[in-house]
């Protein structure tokens, strides 16, 4: 199996989808000829033509452009994959996504559907400043009708993307750009390691899916449960390793619908939990997880659920590492729950 990084795995997923189904179309700002600013669609226009993979005007919002165009196209039976250049730039599209895309099936009692994928590079750790670093997943997990996916490695990225387009419902697909080219252990300024040395860096060329709504235990353990997604899965692993704490680490992969069975089984076993997100703390997705755990596992809990999050500030540029939940902050969180 070839080693791929996340960008290559996404590219391979789109290649497979374009090849198999003439109804799949891909578009976004700079996503056509140039292949996207992160190169996820590189070479696809040359291979499949201008009408399958094309550039969109800079308008995340309107019917004529990305998110909304996805709704209009899906209504006509296409399977669009739209790229929003950075998750931070998804907000002009919020009306189309929240009021329209998410509800087409519901409000038409199933006569119309809006199956599509909105891909977007997400998260910080690349010195992107406040407009290239955000993790806005919680805005979308709050919207009935949307599925929200965040892969943490190349294998899952490909399988989840294919599963997303095949699900028939809209998916907001956030890609942790910090780990596009290699896993990150949450120690700033350390040289990047490569996906080639990671088991999930091996990606089949052909079509396969990774089931939506299923989490994965990436490190079994007894001392506590850690629930993370995206970049922080790797930071959690590094923290457990470094501190010698026998944490059970769950890679959530799908935020909506999230895999409560896997979570509850683990928490009922360990009784101690850290839920992690890079986004600001208040009303973040970690709060949803903490509340659900409290309802499902209250009598198994031995310590308060710990939320490890970004701060309630915009994402700073120069002080990025004071904001990011680094390995050291993760270790403190693990110690807090295991020593409580």
């Amino acid at each position: 199996m070839p080693a791929m990084n996340i960008i290559q795995a996404l590219n391979s997923a789109m290649d497979v989808l374009l090849d198999a189904d003439p109804d799949v179309v891909i578009f976004g700002e700079d996503a056509g000829y140039f292949g996207g600013v992160f190169k996820a669609t590189d070479g696809l226009q040359a291979k499949y033509g201008l009408d399958r993979v094309f550039d969109a005007p800079i308008n995340e919002a309107a019917i004529a452009a990305i998110a909304a165009m996805a709704v209009g196209m899906a209504a006509r039976g296409l399977k669009p994959i739209a790229e929003i250049q950075f998750a931070d730039y998804i907000f002009p599209a919020i009306d189309q996504i929240v009021s329209e895309m998410s509800r087409i099936r519901y409000r038409s009692a199933g006569q119309f559907t809006s199956g599509c994928v909105v891909r977007s590079p997400w998260g910080g750790g690349i010195r992107g400043g406040q407009t290239h670093s955000m993790s806005p997943e919680a805005f979308f997990t709050h919207v009935p009708g949307l599925q929200v996916v965040v892969p943490s490695n190349p294998y899952d990225a490909k399988g989840l993307l294919i599963a997303s387009i095949e699900s028939g419902d809209p998916v907001i697909f956030f890609e942790p750009k910090r780990i596009y080219n290699g896993p990150f252990d949450g120690v700033p300024d350390k040289p990047l390691s490569s996906w080639a040395r990671h088991p999930k860096g091996e990606v089949p060329e052909e079509r396969y899916t990774v089931e939506l709504g299923k989490a994965e235990i990436v490190r079994p353990g007894e001392a506590c449960t850690v629930i993370a997604y995206g970049t922080l899965v790797h930071v959690a692993e590094a923290a457990a390793e470094h501190a010698g704490i026998d944490a059970e680490i769950i890679d959530l992969k799908t935020l909506v619908p999230y895999d409560i069975e896997t979570i509850a089984a683990s928490v009922n076993k360990t009784g101690r939990v850290v839920v992690a997100q890079e986004a600001p703390r208040t009303s973040g997705f970690a709060a949803e997880l903490a509340a659900q755990i409290q309802e499902e596992c209250f009598y198994a809990l031995e310590a308060p659920v710990f939320r490890l999050t970004g701060w309630d500030t915009p994402y700073p540029h120069a002080h990025e590492w004071a904001y990011f939940p680094t390995r050291d902050r993760f270790i403190r969180a693990l110690k807090t729950v295991t020593e409580a």
């Binding site: 992107g128 400043g129 406040q130 407009t131 290239h132 915009p314 700073p316 540029h317 120069a318 002080h319």
Partner: peptide, 9 residues
């Protein structure tokens, strides 16, 4: 001395 306290690109 950044008048924006390092907050902006």
């Amino acid at each position: 001395r950044d008048n924006l306290k390092g907050r902006q690109l």
